[in-house]
């Protein structure tokens, strides 16, 4: 069992449903309309399905793949009803999200050397600092000793922002002046964590657009510097994606993976109207699991991502 399994109470599931209800309603509603009154899959149904998927940011590539799979399933299994279509869809989407990676394997702290070092990366404004605040509070509640590293030394007041989160979560923070070298902040953070025998280290980084090679190289430097103190660090690199981002998220995943070997995704702002469908393609193309979803601004509004829950809450009333 994963480290987070104990967090998943019934209440959490209710929250997940609440957070995803927007996604579910529109997806399901549209799907119901798409198949209403149809006894077989005809071109119209597939066209409507295409619109549903594309309007959810699933992207043309993944949409075409899903539709082709459904077409071949239908010609083989002689599909008939709406319910069957739903279950086929659910299966196909779940399948394309990749099944090889077990949930949260990287977070199984009990089997790992401590501290467990998590580097958080992403483009500007996706919610990195907020996600770190929520994660810190989660780990703290779990009784872990957490140290935060304020390595976003570029954006105005980013350090203050993380400091406020560290106060809220009551965890330690390592911060330097704005404009100082982010690698040195990361180094000092890990050094302190080792001295204090902390369990988890969360390192915040400045938002960077993935096409700026120099900034991406900076991430590689942070990694190298961490490895001076701990050869296998960072143990997890979380790429934070904004659910309202369109197909550019694929490019973000590609570039950040090349620069830092991303091991997990955090999908934020799912409490809005955005569907976040782009993670389906990302997850399958890069084999990176989604770890968490952000469904609000409160300190507890970060939930462990569960592929089946995610797909189910699309289709289950």
């Amino acid at each position: 069992m994963g480290f987070f399994s104990r967090f998943r109470s019934k209440e959490d599931n209710a929250n997940l449903d609440k957070g995803l209800s927007k996604t579910k309603e529109s997806f399901f509603g549209k799907l119901a309309r798409a198949v209403a009154g149809k006894s077989t899959i005809d071109v119209d149904v597939l066209d409507n399905l295409e619109e549903v998927l594309i309007s959810s940011d699933v992207g043309t590539k993944a949409t075409i793949r899903i539709i082709e799979q459904i077409e071949s399933r239908v010609s083989k299994d002689k599909y008939l009803g709406t319910e069957e279509l739903q279950s086929i869809l659910r299966e196909e989407i779940a399948k394309s999200m990749g099944e090889s990676k077990s949930e949260l394997y990287g977070f199984d702290l009990l089997n790992k050397k401590t501290p467990f070092v998590i580097l958080v990366v992403g483009v500007n404004g996706v919610g990195k600092t907020t996600s770190i605040g929520k994660l810190a509070s989660r780990f703290k509640a779990e009784g872990k000793k957490v140290v935060l590293g304020a390595a976003d030394t570029f954006r105005a007041a980013a350090i203050d922002q993380l400091r406020i989160w560290s106060d809220r979560a009551q965890v330690e923070i390592v911060a330097k002046e704005m404009g100082s070298d982010p690698s040195s902040v990361a180094y000092d953070t890990l050094k302190l964590a080792l001295e204090k025998e902390a369990d988890v280290v969360l390192i915040d980084t400045a938002g960077r657009l993935h096409n700026k090679v120099n900034l991406m190289n900076e991430l590689a430097k942070i990694r190298r510097v961490l490895q001076k103190l701990m050869p296998d660090a960072p143990h997890e690199v979380l790429l934070v994606l904004d659910a309202s981002t369109g197909q550019n998220a694929v490019e973000q995943a590609r570039q950040f993976t090349q620069a830092t070997e991303v091991t997990g995704l955090v999908l934020t702002k799912l409490d809005g109207t955005a569907k976040g469908g782009v993670v389906i393609g990302i997850s399958s193309e890069f084999g990176i699991p989604v770890r968490f979803i952000g469904v609000g601004e409160g300190i507890n509004d970060l939930q462990v991502f569960d592929k089946n829950d995610f797909v189910n809450s699309f289709f289950e009333a």
């Binding site: 594309i54 998220a249 782009v278």
Partner: peptide, 15 residues
């Protein structure tokens, strides 16, 4: 609005 916004741009811009 973030230029990377996907299909949701329609909903948000309207709302």
């Amino acid at each position: 609005v973030d230029s990377m916004t996907g299909q949701d741009a329609v909903n948000t811009a309207k709302a």
